[in-house]
Design a protein around this nucleic acid. Structure first.
Lengths: 252, 252
DNA sequence: GCTCCTTTGTTATTATTTAACATTAATTTA
DNA sequence: TAAATTAATGTTAAATAATAACAAAGGAGC
């Protein structure tokens, strides 16, 4: 109930750019002003909205106003990534030990995830910061050199460390996929780390939005047979879907 | 006169990200609040600033906020910490290898720091995210369990890792200090980590705002003789200053 | 010097936000 | 399932901030 409303408020603000509290009250006649205020506070904490006197403004709008092209990866295929992340979030059970990577999809996943008792290992510091808001989640961050483009860390030492760690699930995404080259990324040490994670994980879930298909990145970290479940969006090509299913991969 | 001030207001806002009117008044003691308000109105029309209740925010900051998970923890003694951080930032030279801790003062330090070639090791993920914006800085994040209150990580494995790492400078802060109990924090593993860092650092700089004095936290990680330079604010008690200087510590 | 115009300061008014508490709904636990 | 706990919402009063309106001060041009 609250969750949905929050989402709606964010959406209408993204659409209209800027609204006064009065306008928001008109749009949501069933809740009090105070509740809307509280919603805005929360959206502000999530970085989706800026509160201004008398109302609020969507961050998207601010970016437009400032005239700067916002070239971050966070916007590429963002809607698909959110849907994928929401789906993945439903697969997380209480008490499990999970590895999550540091990609943008993982970032959305950590936002959507329920606040349940579980152990999460991640190499994404943005993911870690997001998860830090959930009080039941225990977080362990992989150490190592930070890559500035995707805010993820990796190191040979971390790979060693994971020798004696086990995961129920590893939820990762790739920067690129082709049937011949498998799933690939752009960092050697990250690739090594992920290979090690897969060795220790009981199930591997791959989040792959369709924009990644047909692309190749330098370091392959997984082939079709390494993964168990594929979570993707609805424009995922049919022939690829068949290919995955032939390899006993559940496609969602 | 007006033009210059407008420019200055815009600059300081770009730098500090967000300021209350009160802070602006401190920064511009010669003009009235109303004038500053009018300045903000104008900057808002120019699209350089977003006015929020109680102050304003630079558009640049808004863009950052939208990318990051924004954990707002408006700090106690924030002004003192900023001054301390600014001072500490001047002590960083090109090409050095530096350890920075994960405290809030360190967070401000990473904002104020120049974008020069250097290697920074940190156990603070908020610090790491901030530094990620500087393209010349090479960042290594300490791995381990994340403490949600201060967004810092630590682990015995990280301590091992630092056995073969050297630092020119370690810049840290403490949660508490008394002459008898030394510098203390609230985490055993973090304390262990810092002790190890001090062993490998040529110089240790301690950032300590005066609100920390006379307090005690459970884990002592350093005594007076372990540190070389103390960076503090101007309400630091005189008798403590003498005490530090007796121990060959430079007080700034 | 004066006059017009811009900038700044002061105060009173208005509007918005926060805080505090009461109430209801939802979740957990026994 | 009911009781207990926690989270969400609503209501009101109090605090806070923003605006408006006007007065005063500073400058530029004559």
């Amino acid at each position: 109930m609250k969750r949905e409303r929050l989402e709606e408020v964010a959406e209408i603000l993204d659409k209209r750019g800027k609204m006064t509290l009065e306008q928001l009250e008109e749009a949501f006649p069933d809740v009090s002003q105070m509740t809307l205020r509280r919603d805005l506070s929360q959206l502000e904490e999530d970085g989706r909205v800026i509160r201004i006197r008398g109302g609020a403004m969507s961050v998207k709008e601010v970016q437009k106003v400032s005239g700067e092209a916002y070239t971050k990866k966070t916007t590429v295929n963002m809607d698909a990534k959110i849907v994928i992340a929401q789906k993945a979030a439903t697969l997380i059970d209480e008490g499990t030990s999970i590895f999550i990577d540091g990609g943008t999809t993982a970032m959305y996943l950590s936002k959507e995830m329920p606040d349940i008792k579980c152990n999460i290992f991640t190499n994404g510091i943005a993911v870690a910061m997001e998860l830090a808001q959930k009080k039941n989640v225990d977080i362990t961050v992989v150490g190592g050199q930070l890559m500035k483009d995707n805010l993820s860390t990796s190191s040979p030492a971390a790979k060693e460390y994971f020798n004696n760690t086990n995961f129920e699930i590893a939820i990762v995404s790739a920067l690129a996929f082709t049937p011949e080259h498998g799933f690939s990324c752009n960092s050697q040490t990250e690739s090594d780390l992920l290979k090690q994670v897969f060795r220790k994980a009981r199930h591997v879930y791959m989040m792959l939005d369709s924009s990644k298909i047909g692309k190749i990145n330098p370091y392959t970290f997984a082939q079709l047979e390494d993964i168990d479940v594929l979570i993707t969006d609805d424009v995922f090509p049919r022939e690829y879907k068949a290919l995955f299913e032939q390899n006993d991969i559940v496609v969602m």
